[in-house]
Simulated scan of single mutants.
Amino acid sequence: MRILHTSDWHLGRSFHGVGMLPAQRHFLDQLVQSVQEKSVDVVLIAGDVYDRALPGVDVVNLLSDTLARIRAAGARIIMTSGNHDSASRLGFGGAVLAHGGVHVRTRTADLAMPVELELDGALLAVYGIPYLEPRLCAEELGAEAPAHTAVMQAALERIRADLAARRNAGRAATVHSLVLAHTFASGGLTSDSERDLSIGGVGAIPLDLFDGLDYVALGHLHGRQQLSQSVRYSGSPLPYSFSEAGHRKGGYLVEFDTGGLAGVEEINWETGRRLAILKATMAELLDSPEYGWAEEAYCQITLTDNERPLRAMERLRERFPDTLVLAFEPASGPQRNTHTYSERIAKAQDDLDICCGFLEHVRSRAADDAERRLLAGALEQAAAAEVSA
């Protein structure tokens, strides 16, 4: 049996103000193609299906269409809710959808109710753990404390109890286990685009909570990574922050047979527009052929000029039209003035000095001659208007 492990689709997300729906459609086309070409039996989505609790109509329609295409390609679907999803909205109609091969696990009460997959005499029990907000579900789960580790431990205890009951019932010669969970497991590498799963702390759960399970399909961290032989993050299918510029995006193709986990391999998908993280002076960025490759990329640019260049974003976008983030980091280090702004203003000789001092304070660059003349003219006009009044 071939199972495609994915997570963190974040349908409806934007990238620094740029809508990503076209890129997400392209990724989903590739996913459906992989299902067809790799003869995938089951597609897993380990949380954060949507990017927000109230997705737009076009986003909901995209998910509906994609689920139908996956089913038409011959694969069943098992998905859970993440911390970005509204569990109740994503799970609406779940009991009806299950009859059509789409299994949704968004309720705490259902986490120990697996989807059963036949393996030529053996059985694969797939459990879906939705995102568990400790303060909301600790009491229901009987957890020792409203904390991520405690609620995940309580959830896994229920799953292990159900596994033991199935194995003792003897319905199948062997019962293997696969668990989906949307959480932050210790040892995982984070990206800038994930929302922290805790308030006031990291909230990571210990990896050994998953000991004894055949495969754990994790969601939440956006970098694809292996924490142990059986515990992995598939990562997000698209980069959602510049910190993911070096990621290779895709999922995992997980294979089970009667003996259990038989193999795991990466599946890669194209992400469309490249991400460029550039750091240089304005002159270098505008003139050097070294940066030609970034002209069609989404760019995060840090200027290292000692003085902040005029019209920096406007000039950069002439060569790099999709510059989305601009920062300044002078090569000589921050230009620090030993005097406070109030002290500097107190020493100003006239109104022109005050205006020029303010300009330097807010942009870290002194007024040039043309700017001083412009400010002087504005002050003269203001003075003349006051006299005439």
Rank of each mutant, 00 (worst) to 15 (best):
R317D: 09
K347T: 13
C299N: 06
Y233V: 04
C299E: 02
G246A: 11
N268E: 11
Y240F: 15
A297G: 10
E318A: 15
L261S: 08
T271Q: 02
K249G: 01
E255Q: 15
I267T: 14
S288W: 10
A312Y: 07
E270I: 02
A297C: 15
E343V: 07
A283G: 03
S332K: 08
T302M: 04
E295S: 12
A348E: 09
R311T: 13
V202M: 14
Y233K: 05
A327Y: 00
G292Y: 06
L326N: 09
N268G: 03
V264W: 05
I267Q: 15
P289V: 12
E266V: 12
Y215C: 09
S234M: 01
H247I: 06
Y252Q: 12
A331C: 07
K279I: 00
L324C: 13
P289Y: 12
T338Q: 06
A331N: 08
D214L: 03
K347W: 11
N268K: 08
D211P: 11
N306S: 13
T302C: 10
T340N: 05
R232P: 00
V216R: 03
D257M: 09
L285A: 04
I267F: 12
L253T: 09
D305C: 04
R336H: 11
T340F: 04
S332N: 09
N268D: 12
H339V: 02
R311G: 07
Q335H: 10
L310V: 10
H220S: 05
L326P: 08
P237V: 03
I301A: 04
L261A: 08
G251W: 01
S236L: 03
T338D: 13
C299W: 00
H339A: 14
P309K: 10
L275T: 00
A297Y: 08
H339R: 15
H339I: 01
L213H: 15
R273A: 13
Q225S: 02
A280E: 14
E244K: 01
I277G: 02
L316W: 05
R273V: 15
L275F: 00
G223F: 08
R248E: 14
E329A: 08
Y215K: 10
G246C: 03
Y233C: 04
L261Q: 10
G223N: 12
S234N: 01
T281G: 08
G292H: 10
G292A: 14
D208G: 05
Q225P: 01
F242Q: 04
G292R: 12
L221W: 12
P206D: 03
T304V: 05
H339F: 07
G250V: 02
L261V: 11
A331K: 14
L261I: 11
E265Y: 03
P239L: 05
E343P: 09
Y252I: 03
W269Q: 01
P239S: 10
D208A: 14
F242A: 04
A280N: 15
G223C: 06
G223M: 07
N337P: 10
E318T: 14
L253C: 15
T323S: 15
F328M: 03
Q300F: 03
A276N: 03
R274P: 11
A217W: 10
E295G: 03
L227P: 10
V202L: 15
A312H: 05
A204N: 07
G333K: 01
L316Q: 05
A297K: 06
R224Y: 08
R274N: 13
I267D: 08
G333I: 00
T302R: 08
T281D: 00
A217E: 06
G246L: 02
T304Y: 02
